[in-house]
Design a protein around this nucleic acid. Sequence first.
DNA 1: CATGAATGAGGTTTCATTCAT
DNA 2: AATGAATGAAACCTCATTCAT
Lengths: 179, 179, 179, 179
Amino acid sequence: MDREGWEQAALDALEEAGPDAIAIVPLAKALGVTRGSFYHHFDSREELVDAAVERWYAVHVTGVLDAVGAIADPRERLRQLLGRAVDKPPTILAQLLASPEPLVRAAVRRAAAERLAFLTRTYADLGLSPAAARDQALLAYAAYLGLAQLLQDQPDALATPRRKTAFAKHLQAQLIPAE
Amino acid sequence: MDREGWEQAALDALEEAGPDAIAIVPLAKALGVTRGSFYHHFDSREELVDAAVERWYAVHVTGVLDAVGAIADPRERLRQLLGRAVDKPPTILAQLLASPEPLVRAAVRRAAAERLAFLTRTYADLGLSPAAARDQALLAYAAYLGLAQLLQDQPDALATPRRKTAFAKHLQAQLIPAE
Amino acid sequence: MDREGWEQAALDALEEAGPDAIAIVPLAKALGVTRGSFYHHFDSREELVDAAVERWYAVHVTGVLDAVGAIADPRERLRQLLGRAVDKPPTILAQLLASPEPLVRAAVRRAAAERLAFLTRTYADLGLSPAAARDQALLAYAAYLGLAQLLQDQPDALATPRRKTAFAKHLQAQLIPAE
Amino acid sequence: MDREGWEQAALDALEEAGPDAIAIVPLAKALGVTRGSFYHHFDSREELVDAAVERWYAVHVTGVLDAVGAIADPRERLRQLLGRAVDKPPTILAQLLASPEPLVRAAVRRAAAERLAFLTRTYADLGLSPAAARDQALLAYAAYLGLAQLLQDQPDALATPRRKTAFAKHLQAQLIPAE
DNA sequence: CATGAATGAGGTTTCATTCAT
DNA sequence: AATGAATGAAACCTCATTCAT
């Protein structure tokens, strides 16, 4: 059991049961080790939370934006991001939003800022005025966030693949300016 | 100190510090009474959480939908609801979304269902097809939820009144079908 | 079991086993209650240590100095204090000297300052110059402190009553100026 | 990192932060090695404490008594010892007095016995009766010990060099019999 | 020689809850 | 109605120690 194992276990617990579930004793039990072992890899629970959040950030924020940012067509960029919202709703993020810990809040804030900036740039690339691009980015990101929450509590809201596809199309029609 | 006092204190704590803050010991300390007093009015913490959530539901879900439902013009209905999202972001709801407690999740789910139904009806009133109305309602409510989260962590995203008004207009333009 | 009981138990443990022995779990076990009970009376271990130290201070510093201060004859005052050093060596003080906790150190320092001032006044009353009074007070208090340590580790250094009396006389002869 | 390094680190930690500071984890961290390394040189914490105390004993007890014992004039012997009390207050000893560990207590006791015997011999050399020599040795050593404690908590008690010299003279006048 | 991983004991603290008064 | 005392569970954290490598 190394640092990464703990980080992943923390993220899994977070996704399933919320921020309070990042608790050393239960995690240790789940991992089949004693709690003392944890302190070999981390100085404190805070350090674990921090590391887990950073791991999430690297994969789901920086990673995704880098990948999508490499796409030339702004419309395709938005299509990818909106499709992701429906196909792989960011349930971890939905839970992170719930955390009262300053460190987590900071990461969530940073993620929002970076994503809003990306969206704003993308909408500007599509010819929107700076103000309109900013507003539209805010709307799109709010929809993304809210959808994550909604789908977490009501996974049956978009239960069938048909509904899913239909809604994805609707999202694109509403949030991607026509050519 | 009566039942209502405890419920209100619970909601206040929730709004300020998240679901974990609904804890009897700290609340009693804040209210200047002993914990024993709490057990006069409630059988358990769960009962308090339940009561507080019901109070929120009555005011912010049923109450608002009743009031807005009394408005004849569907467009005005939507305008009111979207304006509310920007002017009084539902911070309590943002925190409720964070709670791991089944009771709270159920209330949040119920609220979502009722609101989605209301929005779907309203969009149908505007002439959208059943499917389109449902999709559009989902988008609008997701935006509403996400905005609450966003504004909680980044109150400066819409700091100036001008930005606020502009964004409210943008929301209406994007989410209310043209006449 | 009330606050005072805990304070006394803390002082007893301190006297017998040193500052580390002021530990909630073992004390609770000794008192026949659970550790949770402790937190009904105190907010933290620090608060207990603080309260216990204050209790010691009131009895052994303020109390003794008040009583001895009421004696008119300066020589008798010194006789009493030196006698006490031999008869009831301040074992609690010897342990307090060992504590690394800032709060305890502060109390020990305060006690030293108050006692040194008292001794200095007393020696001045006997006609010593200010400088000499101060030096002599320092010597006398150092002897008092050191004796406490010495007798704690070697209770047999003054085992027999005869040795005790003899040494008490010696102390008086050496540390109280001749008439 | 060899045995001696650990012993010295233990003594340094002891002098600075008291007996509880002789802890393998923090020492290892401070020395930049892992705890496993410690168990190469020592079987247990107890062995380290023992070794460190023996090192202190060899230098500060045996060593000093040997050096001072080589001086012919008993008065000069006392002058040296008392001067040391003021110039280099034995802060390690002050901390050792605080330790609850039997091994440490034993060493402290042994040191006291050896030093008291030395002082008693010295006072006898000056012509005091056996009983008087013993009492005077006890007084002198108590003052030495107490001064160490006092100066540790109140380093400003003898802050200026003038005060220091004056008090050293006072000590000699009071504790070394006149010729 | 030393490291890295893990254990287990022991401590502090917070909290929901019970109960006699 | 409310208080004060206490319980027990669960969490965090620090250490001494062991062991395979």
